[in-house]
Amino acid sequence: MAEARKLSVEHVHRSRMEPGCVSHAVHVDCENPQRLVFVEEWADHASLQEHFKVPASGHFVAALSALAGEKPRMVVYQAEHVGA
Rank of each mutant, 00 (worst) to 15 (best):
S8G: 14
S8V: 07
S8L: 08
V9C: 00
V9I: 09
V9E: 04
V9H: 03
E10S: 13
E10N: 15
E10D: 15
H11N: 14
H11G: 01
H11Y: 09
H11R: 10
H11D: 10
V12E: 10
V12G: 08
V12N: 06
V12L: 09
H13E: 15
H13S: 13
H13L: 15
H13F: 09
H13N: 15
R14G: 04
S15N: 06
S15P: 03
R16P: 02
R16Q: 11
R16A: 07
M17F: 01
M17P: 00
M17W: 00
M17R: 14
M17Y: 00
E18A: 05
E18L: 09
E18P: 00
P19S: 08
G20A: 07
G20H: 03
C21G: 01
V22G: 04
V22K: 11
V22Y: 03
V22W: 02
S23I: 00
S23H: 03
S23R: 08
S23N: 09
H24I: 01
H24L: 05
H24D: 06
H24K: 05
A25P: 00
A25R: 09
V26P: 05
V26M: 13
V28T: 14
V28F: 02
D29M: 06
C30P: 13
C30Q: 06
C30N: 06
E31R: 10
E31W: 02
E31Q: 09
E31L: 09
E31T: 05
E31A: 09
N32A: 12
N32T: 07
N32K: 06
P33M: 02
P33C: 05
P33D: 09
P33T: 12
P33L: 02
Q34E: 13
Q34A: 11
Q34H: 09
Q34R: 08
R35V: 12
R35K: 15
R35N: 11
R35A: 08
R35S: 10
R35D: 10
L36Q: 11
L36H: 11
L36C: 12
V37I: 15
V37A: 04
V37Q: 08
V37E: 04
F38S: 08
F38D: 06
F38A: 07
V39P: 00
V39T: 10
V39D: 02
V39Y: 15
E40K: 01
E40T: 13
E40M: 03
E40D: 15
E40C: 01
E41I: 12
E41Q: 15
E41Y: 12
E41R: 15
W42T: 01
W42I: 00
A43W: 00
A43K: 13
A43T: 10
D44E: 14
D44T: 07
D44R: 08
D44A: 10
H45K: 11
H45S: 07
H45R: 11
H45W: 01
H45D: 10
H45T: 05
H45A: 13
A46E: 11
A46C: 00
A46Y: 05
S47D: 07
S47P: 02
L48G: 02
L48W: 13
Q49L: 14
E50H: 14
E50Q: 15
H51R: 09
H51K: 11
H51I: 07
H51G: 03
H51E: 04
F52C: 09
F52A: 13
F52G: 04
F52T: 07
